[in-house]
Computed example of a mutant assay.
Amino acid sequence: MSSSGPSKMTGTKDEILGSAKATIGSTIGNHQMEAEGHTQNKAGTAEKNAAAAKQKVEGAGDSLFGHAQKATGQVLGNERMQGEGEMNKAKGTAKSDTA
């Protein structure tokens, strides 16, 4: 995991490299390489899943903030705030949907 948090890209890279390492290790009879490959593959899967979960939570937060912002704009009669709230809701929904 990177210092900025889990990454789908890094997770996918580790999944692929780990799988390749495990296959090569198995093929050449290097059990240590095979085990390291399986471990790297599993770590990559875990990082990718953590990144997706983080993205879903962030998206839900953006959506909730947008909903509150839009409602506040409606109460205050502030059309700009309503529009920004709608945009934040959409951003949050898109972020959650692509996780």
Rank of each mutant, 00 (worst) to 15 (best):
K91Q: 08
A99P: 05
M81Q: 11
H67S: 15
K21L: 06
M87Q: 04
E47F: 09
G11M: 00
L76D: 03
L76G: 01
I24W: 13
A99N: 04
A46F: 02
I16F: 02
T39K: 11
S26C: 04
G5K: 01
S26W: 05
E47L: 05
A20W: 13
G83H: 07
Q40G: 04
E47T: 02
K21H: 05
A20M: 15
T10R: 05
G92E: 00
N88W: 07
G66N: 08
M33N: 05
A68R: 12
H38A: 05
K21Y: 03
K8C: 07
E84Q: 11
Q55W: 01
N30S: 11
T10N: 08
G59I: 02
E15R: 15
D62H: 05
M81D: 03
I16A: 12
G73H: 07
E79C: 03
G18Q: 07
G11I: 00
A71L: 14
A50N: 07
A35W: 04
Q32L: 14
A71P: 09
S63L: 11
M87H: 07
L76A: 04
R80H: 07
L17D: 05
A22C: 08
G66Y: 10
A90V: 03
A22N: 11
N78E: 05
A60D: 02
T45Q: 15
G25W: 15
E84K: 11
E15L: 11
Q82P: 03
Q32I: 15
V75H: 01
E86F: 06
N49T: 15
A90C: 00
N78V: 01
P6N: 13
G61W: 00
Q55M: 02
K8W: 12
G92Y: 06
K21A: 09
G85Q: 06
S2E: 13
A50I: 02
Q69P: 01
K70Y: 03
S19K: 13
Q40P: 01
A20Y: 13
E86H: 10
M1I: 06
D97I: 03
G59L: 04
L76F: 02
T45C: 08
Q40K: 15
A20E: 10
I16D: 10
A35D: 12
L76Y: 01
A50D: 08
T93F: 04
I24E: 03
E15I: 14
K21I: 08
G61P: 00
G18N: 06
T23S: 15
A60L: 14
G83V: 04
I24H: 07
A43L: 12
G25H: 14
N30R: 14
V75N: 05
A35R: 07
N88R: 10
E15Y: 12
S19R: 10
N30V: 12
S19I: 09
K54E: 01
H31I: 09
V57P: 02
G92C: 03
A22G: 09
G77I: 00
H38S: 02
N41M: 15
K42M: 11
E79V: 10
K89R: 09
A99R: 00
T39Q: 12
G11K: 00
G66I: 12
I24P: 00
F65S: 14
S63V: 05
A22M: 09
K95C: 00
N41P: 02
H67P: 06
R80I: 06
N49I: 07
Q69S: 09
T93K: 11
K8F: 13
A43K: 08
K70F: 06
T23H: 13
T10W: 10
K42P: 05
K95W: 05
G59W: 07
G18Y: 00
M81K: 10
